[in-house]
Simulated scan of single mutants.
Amino acid sequence: MSITATIAAELRGVSREYGLGNAQVKALDGVSLAFPAASWTAVMGPSGSGKSTLLHCAAGLDRVNRGQVFLAGQEVTAAPDRVLTELRRRTVGFVFQSFNLIGSLTAEQNVTLPLKLAGVRVRRADVHAVLGAVGLGDRLRHRPRELSGGQQQRVAIARAMVTRPAILFADEPTGALDSASARTVLALLRRMVDQEGQSIAMVTHDPAAAANADAVVFLSDGRLVDRLIRPSAREVAERLALLEAVPC
């Protein structure tokens, strides 16, 4: 069973619980959500609403208790670990708040790493091109300690994009950046969607960051409770404030 090519990833009736008995926590409760291809979806909600769990389940990093998960047109709900790992390497890119760069490697070597791990032949021209696309063509041989926070995050984005993934999952990608660096990174992500047709699913707590997306979806207590299309930062902030003040 597969889904249309216009959907990069999808959750259908997904529930995810942790723990047992009285200690059980329901992180997701029957969530159905599609991430359209060539579009940017931001995921928001109060602390503990299930945002990161949703992202991890959609990316195949976490197994669901109930429901179905589709990734790049293929159902992966019960896929063997080996199959799922191979699919992630080919179709998914990840960007996190902490950058996760290897300090002893240059920017070029950090970007090359996913290709080597996947057993893919490394073409230096491709690596240089993706670093040039994020504005770091002149920083190929710089190590993370020689780069600003914003530049390190752009290296992390280049590393995620070098495999040309069907969808990029970003978990608080601007959370560790100053405002100027955050704007640069968000503008880069916007260009990737508009000019290259990249699909992005991003968890964020920042209304200004979410306002760059094509759609913002809101979670509360593990449930999908609202969606805004091309909202302003003010509209996002107001909706989030309501969720934090009045549990759904």
Rank of each mutant, 00 (worst) to 15 (best):
P207D: 04
A79T: 03
A8S: 12
A233S: 14
V25G: 04
A9F: 04
L140C: 07
A201P: 00
L87N: 04
A58S: 12
A201C: 15
Q68H: 14
L168M: 01
S104C: 13
L188M: 15
N110T: 12
S47Q: 02
K51T: 02
H56T: 15
H205L: 02
S104G: 09
D62G: 00
Y18P: 05
N212C: 10
T77W: 06
A23R: 11
L168F: 00
Q97N: 11
L228Y: 10
V64R: 03
E75T: 05
S181A: 15
A209Y: 12
D178A: 13
A156T: 05
R191L: 10
Q198C: 02
R164Q: 14
S148K: 02
L55G: 01
A72N: 08
A209S: 12
A180R: 11
A156P: 01
N22Q: 13
Q198E: 09
L11V: 06
H142M: 01
I157W: 03
Q151S: 08
L189V: 08
T41D: 06
S148I: 15
S220E: 13
G149K: 04
S39A: 15
V83W: 13
W40D: 08
L188F: 10
A241F: 11
A118I: 00
N212Q: 14
H56I: 09
A78S: 15
A107L: 01
L224A: 06
V185H: 05
T174V: 01
T41G: 07
A9M: 09
F35E: 07
R234I: 09
T41K: 01
Q109D: 15
F99H: 04
R123D: 14
Q74Y: 04
D214I: 00
G73K: 13
L242H: 14
R16M: 05
G135V: 08
A245N: 07
E10V: 05
